[in-house]
């Protein structure tokens, strides 16, 4: 068996295992975000949104749909990898991978692909639900798909790093609660940063989630608070840095080897 063949099969195995894991417990992994975003569409989109009026030339529900889709991608990509890899460590079956001839980059690619799969499936489900509430216009299919995929990669990597450092279940809840959720909510899901005073607009620019949500919104609606090209560079830069850091953690065995 060639080395390339072994790596390909090992990668497929990790991805299959990861997809089967979240598919088996779909009531805990796919259904809750679908219900939550349906509630967002009803409450913020329909009930409150109709009183808010237009936002950047679009009805409020049309304006929040891109942010809500991407929020579900962010949360689910992250949650999948952090919980799966932490369980792997906690129950010690990370040893199955450590002892096998699987390079670190294959391990990382396998887990990130698993996170992407869940993020993209949930994102697609949420997109489908949004069609019950509003018509979806797509300004650029390629940009929409690109941001959809890049965001899921980025937050899968972030989830992986969190799982490497986590020593208890509390540690895997802290980052989503105190970092991810505030950044997402303040990243322009529900509003344009043009509504904020000048100072808070500048502060908002330090939030990486803002760039993703705005680029995705641009892909769908054609409106954005920021320059989409800069946003793409920032997203790719984050992915490069987090990939490098994740591989460094794996090669040093942080959290998984003595």
């Amino acid at each position: 068996m060639s080395s390339g063949h072994v790596k390909r099969i090992a990668y497929q195995t990790i991805v299959t295992k990861e997809v089967l894991r979240f598919a088996r417990i779909w009531v805990q992994t796919i259904l809750p975000p679908a219900i939550t975003t349906t509630l967002y569409f009803i409450i913020f989109g329909k009930l409150i949104g109709e009183r808010i009026g237009m936002m950047e030339g679009y009805r409020y529900i049309e304006f929040i749909v891109p942010g809500l889709i991407l929020m579900s991608v962010i949360q689910n990509s992250y949650a999948n990898v952090v919980s799966s890899f932490f369980s792997t460590k906690l129950q010690h079956y990370i040893e199955e991978l450590l002892i096998a001839p699987v390079p670190n980059w294959i391990v990382l690619a396998g887990y990130v692909t698993g996170g992407m799969a869940r993020g993209l499936i949930v994102g697609t489900v949420v997109t489908g639900i949004s069609l019950f509430f509003t018509d979806l216009t797509i300004n650029s299919y390629s940009l929409t798909l690109l941001v959809f995929v890049l965001t899921s990669i980025l937050f899968s990597l972030a989830g992986f790093i969190n799982a490497v450092y986590a020593k208890s279940f509390d540690d895997i809840a802290i980052v989503p609660t105190f970092v991810l959720t505030p950044l997402t909510y303040l990243g322009g899901v529900f509003y344009s940063i043009q509504l904020l005073p000048e100072f808070w607009q500048q502060v908002s620019l330090a939030n990486p989630v803002l760039y993703m949500i705005n680029t995705f919104r641009y892909g769908l609606l054609g409106v954005s608070d920021i320059d989409v090209r800069i946003a793409l560079v920032i997203i790719v830069a984050f992915i490069v840095v987090l990939t490098w850091y994740s591989l460094r953690l794996l090669s040093r065995g942080v959290g998984i080897k003595e």
Partner: peptide
């Protein structure tokens, strides 16, 4: 050191997969 929630056969199939 195996996944306690995984069926027995899948534990073996996954392990074999890691070896190509």
């Amino acid at each position: 050191n195996f996944n306690m929630w995984e069926p027995v056969v899948e534990i073996l199939v996954n392990q074999a997969g890691y070896y190509g």
